[in-house]
């Protein structure tokens, strides 16, 4: 990794004009894993100092500034109040405090990292993202896109709704990347299931979700069938942490567990 210029901007507008001006300009967020990317960066744009690190409630949404650190997210009582605190639960399982004090939620989401523990629970909470230029877009839609982002993520917005949530991540050691993670929520009678670190980026198990909502009885059999549906619709891959086949088995186990938890 090589950086030619470091720019601490004084406004989002300034940051955006730098991005527009050069294809080799990048927002650096926390920068914790910047050195792992081989790219050469012309302008590294630092957004700290723009007040983008607050966590507030606004208009029925919890709004997390994109520059909030993972540690801030994990410790936030507001975020903890959402669906059994699954976002905090996921955040606190990411590496150590010394990293979570650097890495930001915006950086995590923009990276669309397959190994992310944080994106998976956010996907089952109807999370939306607010960009400077593009405005609002749902996280699920954003994750589905492949185009490179040339915009500035400002806020992560989570609707404040009552519901049950469950998250689990399977790791070899506590600070490792997951072999697989899964999050399940049940909000307003609707079920959502997301599976991440497949090792590809997180996805919703749409067919399994639909199946659960049509189940007459939310019992063990329903969970079992939903899990089978999920492993049939989701694609898994192999890496040094586990094979595609093992991930499939984990997915089945986790989806079952998650459903049992949120349906009970």
């Amino acid at each position: 990794m090589k950086i030619n210029n470091y720019v601490k901007v004084s406004s989002v507008k300034e940051a955006y004009s730098i991005l527009e001006g050069s294809s080799k300009a990048t927002i650096i967020a926390g920068g914790a894993w910047l050195r792992l990317t081989p790219a050469e960066i012309d302008e590294a744009v630092d957004l700290s100092g723009l007040g983008l690190d607050s966590i507030d409630v606004n208009d029925g949404f919890v709004e997390i500034g994109s520059m909030a650190t993972l540690r801030q997210v994990e410790k936030s009582d507001i975020v903890k109040s959402l669906c059994n605190g699954i976002v905090c639960d996921a955040a606190e399982k990411i590496m150590g405090v010394t990293v979570r004090n650097i890495a930001t939620i915006g950086g995590t989401i923009s990276g669309k990292y397959g190994f992310s523990d944080l994106i998976t629970p956010l996907m089952v909470l109807d999370t939306e993202l607010e960009f400077h230029e593009r405005g609002r877009v749902s996280l699920v839609e954003f994750m589905d896109e492949t185009a490179k982002i040339r915009d500035i993520l400002l806020k992560i917005r989570i609707p404040m709704k009552e519901g049950r949530g469950w998250f689990e991540t399977i790791k070899i050691t506590a600070i490792d990347f997951p072999i697989l993670n899964a999050a399940v929520t049940r909000i307003d009678g609707k079920t959502k299931i997301a599976v991440g670190s497949r090792p590809y980026k997180a996805v919703l198990a749409e067919m399994a979700m639909a199946y659960v909502d049509t189940c007459g009885k939310h019992d063990a059999d329903c969970a079992e069938r939903a899990a089978m549906t999920a492993i049939a619709e989701i694609k898994f891959g192999s890496n040094s942490r586990g094979s595609a086949n093992y991930r499939k088995q984990l997915c089945e186990a986790l989806v079952k567990r998650g459903l049992r938890e949120v349906m009970s």
Binding site: I175, D176, F177
Partner: peptide
């Protein structure tokens, strides 16, 4: 070697 960094080669942490 695929496990040529401490991100890919895992030693026990105090949680294990």
């Amino acid at each position: 070697m695929i496990t040529n960094s401490m991100m890919t080669y895992r030693i026990p942490t105090r949680k294990e």
